[in-house]
Design a protein around this nucleic acid. Structure first.
Lengths: 224, 224
DNA sequence: TCACCGTCTATTGTATACAAATCGAAACGG
DNA sequence: CCGTTTCGATTTGTATACAATAGACGGTGA
């Protein structure tokens, strides 16, 4: 991460995910270069990578902007994610090793702790949740699937403002994770797949309820 | 396509897909620059894009090589493709417009002509086949789905040596396309999805049969 | 002979200068 | 008043020079 282009990539990406750079904001190479403190060359490198991540869009004349998402595109994105992540769960269930299952249980208990504190610790919840899903993806053992899912998950929609959820919603998410663990322990791929699909679809509807009427996305929900 | 980086991208990509650059071959920037006739700057741009396409891999120290695929990775790839393309078929069936259906019928008849000639015209078949699938993808109306599927389809495995198929196999493919048309005409998404999934899975098994025992991929089959 | 280490070369990373193209605004004409 | 054109400012594209770094080769010592 010490190379300039990596720093540029991380810097711009963080700015987009955090909302510092709003959806639709123009991304001039010169301006970014000055901001990050490197020349335009590594900035151009970073922009290509961010384009592949679909975090930025380019006009026909190659000008870059922070990607904007219509509600339909967000819906598509969740639909694809439900499909891809449920396949990951199926494959994971079929390949689950005891060590991984144990790691998942540890995550699960961390999630439980975060949820049941006097005031739910949302940051701890999110971190453990992220790791839970990452472990499943790793257990699915498919590089392409990993690449696809990473692109689907790492969006401003998923990252921003995950703090709007009630304790009941956190608990429901936790309960679904528990069910996933059961499916994994039994190696039942279809069961795991169905739970995961429902898990993601519920997250989408929670998002849609919270943002109904919005034409473009400025903030979003987290898959809990 | 007149910019140097676009020419570089197209040139390197063609070399990989055609097999001129074998799987695992090293891709030095300087050498590519000389070959394409541009400087290293657009070459680096092109390599980033090809990396996003998963046509090349990079070592930790950023040296580039033509991607190699184990048989397991190829199987993964087909599994993902069956999933993604069957979703595309489902969405297309639910959104199908008469004009698109008509265009699909035209493709279908071109495929029929190519198949039933004295000596099957495989190139015409492949072009019409490609357009058939592209029309479905467009009708699915999901940019992300398009991006995912393009990455899955544009691989050496799918592109190279599609000339090994018998007339019977071409006919079977054509028959499946006909069934897809029926599903589209009736707007039956589940039917379309199931046919497409079977269509892709059959292509994989044809591939696996033809290349059984191969550890890494040098040539491949085409989804017929 | 083999392992280790330093140097040397080849390759990639970055900065900068300049060329080309595009966008916007002002001037012009209808 | 609106549309069009033209020109300047801004932005991206490319080439090149140089810096940094990884990999290869050969030498040295045990």
């Amino acid at each position: 991460m010490s190379r300039a282009s990596d720093r540029a990539y991380a810097s711009i990406r963080d700015s987009i995910l955090s909302g510092e750079l709003a959806a639709g904001a123009p991304l001039g190479e010169e301006a970014l270069a000055k901001k990050v403190g490197v020349s335009r060359t590594p900035i151009r490198d970073a922009l290509r990578r961010l384009e592949a991540d679909m975090l930025i869009r380019r006009t026909e004349s190659q000008r870059s902007f922070v990607a904007e998402w219509s509600i339909d595109e967000v819906a598509d994105s969740f639909e694809l994610r439900a499909m891809v992540e449920s396949l990951a769960a199926k494959r994971a269930a079929e390949r689950m090793r005891p060590e991984t299952l144990e790691q998942l249980r540890v995550c699960d208990s961390r999630i439980n702790t975060a949820t049941e504190e006097k005031k739910p610790d949302v940051n701890a919840f999110l971190e453990a949740n992220r790791e839970f899903h990452a472990l499943i993806l790793e257990a699915a053992a498919s590089p392409r699937l990993s690449a696809m899912l990473t692109n689907l998950v790492e969006q401003p929609i998923v990252w921003r403002t995950a703090h709007h959820y009630s304790r009941d919603e956190l608990r429901r998410s936790h309960r679904e994770h528990g069910e996933l663990l059961s499916a994994f322990a039994r190696g039942d791929g279809e069961w795991a797949s169905d739970i995961m699909s429902a898990h993601i679809r519920r997250a989408f509807h929670a998002y849609a309820d919270a943002h109904s009427g919005l034409a473009a996305i400025g903030s979003g929900g987290q898959d809990l």
